[in-house]
Amino acid sequence: MSAELHRRAVVAETHNDLLMGVVARPPERWAGFFRERWLPQLRDGGVDLQVLPVFIDEQFRPEGSLRETLRMIEAAHVLAEGNADEVSLCRDGEEIDRALADGKIALVLALESAPGLDANVELFSTLHRLGVRVASIAHWGRTPLADGSGEDATGSRLTRAGVETLAEMERLGMLFDVSHLGASGVAHVLELATRPVMATHSSARALRDHHRNLTDDQLRGIAATGGVVCVNFLAGFLSADPAEWTIDRLVDHIEHVASVAGIDHVGLGPDFIRELNLELTPPCCEGMVTMAGFDVNAVVPGLDGPRGLPLVTEALLRRGHSEPDILKILGDNVHHLFQKQLGRPA
């Protein structure tokens, strides 16, 4: 029953850093590597809609950030063109619907913390022209636009350029992503937002008191904008106790978000990074362990990559959730948000 339901669902996955693995190969291998390494995983996991974040590792910051940002965006276009029978890089809801109707995986480009842009807000328009449709403006630390959650003690709100960025993204029809943003920054965004905002990969702070997770007030605030909170699967964000690194604990977070924000405002943002961390040389994201406070390679058994996503459907059914609610969680909520907002100018 769960397998049939999972096949029938539109499964939307809002955070997989696979572009980092693609761009680590020579350009002539980008399309082929995606087809060999990632496409089977996405198909086995039933993924229909995949957000592709552009994350710039420490080794490229600050001097090479913009160059690497452009390389990763180019890699996304190349892998989409080279696998046009299987995937489509989408700029709006109509293109997503067309891809899904054709049996293709809809890909959506996102920026994670936008380090290459500095305070040059006008470059968001440039990246919008290149197909970027979702963006966050901070990671763990400080940027010219805002502070990440690792700097919560500063109590910092958005900078002037950060405020301008939010307005520009709303004008362009880009979705603002609050994952990784500091608490005061999230509050500032929720004060100013006139269009839906989302969290692409954040769990519930009421269940795991970690600065990367969202409080109940933040969950309600995001829902009030019409946005969606996509729950992070990383074990350390679900519990401080390794004995609780289970699928049931993940479902606890999904249920909590649904109970606070509403069933129409929860989705899946797995943050599948273990494979990338283990394969990239030099090691990817070494500073993350210090900032996170736990081993970021620790995963819930079975959920180390997209192939494990059917296990979530199985667990939701086992916990007694209705099919309509499960379909919303798996992807309908994100799909509907993208249909209404993605690429639609204010």
Rank of each mutant, 00 (worst) to 15 (best):
E4G: 05
R8L: 12
R8V: 02
V11C: 08
H15L: 09
L18I: 12
L18V: 07
L19R: 00
G21E: 05
V23S: 06
A24W: 12
F34Q: 05
W38E: 14
W38G: 00
L42A: 12
D48Q: 12
L49Q: 01
Q50V: 08
P53L: 02
Q59K: 15
P62A: 10
G64M: 10
L70Y: 11
L70M: 13
E81D: 14
S88Q: 14
D92N: 15
D97T: 07
A99M: 02
K104E: 06
A106Y: 11
A106M: 11
L111Y: 10
L111S: 04
S113Y: 00
A114I: 00
N120A: 15
V121Q: 02
E122Q: 14
S125C: 09
H128P: 07
L130Y: 14
V134W: 04
A138M: 00
R142E: 10
P144Y: 10
G148H: 01
A161L: 08
G162R: 00
L166H: 08
M169K: 02
E170P: 07
R171D: 14
G173S: 11
G173K: 12
L175D: 08
A183K: 13
A187L: 12
H188R: 03
T200N: 04
L207G: 11
H211V: 08
N213R: 00
L214G: 01
R220H: 03
G221T: 05
I222A: 01
A223G: 07
A224G: 10
V229E: 03
F233E: 02
L234I: 14
L234Y: 14
L238K: 02
L238W: 03
S239L: 06
A243Y: 05
V251N: 08
A258M: 03
S259V: 05
V260T: 04
A261H: 09
A261Q: 04
G262A: 07
G262R: 02
D264F: 12
G269Y: 05
P270G: 07
F272Y: 11
E275G: 13
L278P: 08
T281K: 15
M288V: 12
M288P: 00
V289P: 00
T290Q: 13
T290D: 11
F294Q: 01
N297T: 15
V299P: 01
P301C: 06
G302R: 09
G302W: 14
V312F: 11
T313Y: 09
A315W: 12
A315T: 13
R319C: 10
P324V: 06
D325M: 11
D325I: 09
L327W: 13
K328V: 09
L330G: 01
L330K: 15
G331T: 07
N333I: 08
V334M: 14
V334K: 10
H335F: 15
H336Q: 15
L337G: 04
Q339G: 11
K340V: 11
R344W: 04
A346K: 11
